[in-house]
Design a protein around this nucleic acid. Sequence first.
DNA 1: AATGGCAGTTACCTCCAGGTAACCAGGTTA
DNA 2: TAACCTGGTTACCTGGAGGTAACTGCCATT
Lengths: 138, 138
Amino acid sequence: MSTQEELPYDVYQDRCPTRLVLDRLADKWALLILDRLKDGPVRFNSLKRDIMRITPKVLSETLRKLERDGLIARAVFATVPVTVEYSLSPLGDTLTDTVSALAHWAERNMDAVLAAQAAYDAAITAAAIPTPGLHRLR
Amino acid sequence: MSTQEELPYDVYQDRCPTRLVLDRLADKWALLILDRLKDGPVRFNSLKRDIMRITPKVLSETLRKLERDGLIARAVFATVPVTVEYSLSPLGDTLTDTVSALAHWAERNMDAVLAAQAAYDAAITAAAIPTPGLHRLR
DNA sequence: AATGGCAGTTACCTCCAGGTAACCAGGTTA
DNA sequence: TAACCTGGTTACCTGGAGGTAACTGCCATT
């Protein structure tokens, strides 16, 4: 399915720098921010309002990390009060379809996940209360 | 771009159950495990060997969470010694292209990220050591 | 004079994810 | 008899991510 090119990096390897990037991407807040920037530049406080429960501290930190990795760009406008816009860089843009798909997969499949959790928990509970005369494995 | 269906869930909302699922998916180890299962069932110790630096504890915990969410299936075979195979569930299968793309994006774009980091750090260092006679904004 | 919007920063603290390392049982091989 | 395979579990501990809440400075509005 995938074209097996020979890349110098392997995310399965310990000590591979890609692990650090994966760690950055494997972050709830980073995914939501990138998804939110998909449709154009957004200001700090707008992000803060849209991504509910994110704190200014975490938002600021996450934005800086994403900027450092070259995924987003920060633009300051000398308006009054000052305006700061965050937008996807060309590099970040190569990522957003994927990020977006991941971030919204849960919305599309939440019911299936909830059902699976309920089934799993029911099975565990059933196993924890052994029915007399019935030998339970697991 | 995206078909705007009306879904009962919104991952931007605090208190939405999708946030919990996003948190599960936004995990380095979970992403690597799902990616590894893409090509068929894999045994516990095989996963442990392939995903370097993962500890049996974290592997076991992550597998259980993914199983609870219905993303993977656990099959025990009464061989000797016992064989346990983990595989993608149909639900998990709907996710792997996305997960795989995310996990391997870093491999394809690592050089760009490293360059961006170097540029960012250089700019910060330059700003921290102000050139005399030159007024630096930031 | 007080409140609110802008874009953050700072100090403080807590909690638990995840690491370390040993250990379990049962069976096979050297 | 000792080591190694299978698939994990357990106890213990620490670092640092991330939460809380207050605060900055500047300006406009009420």
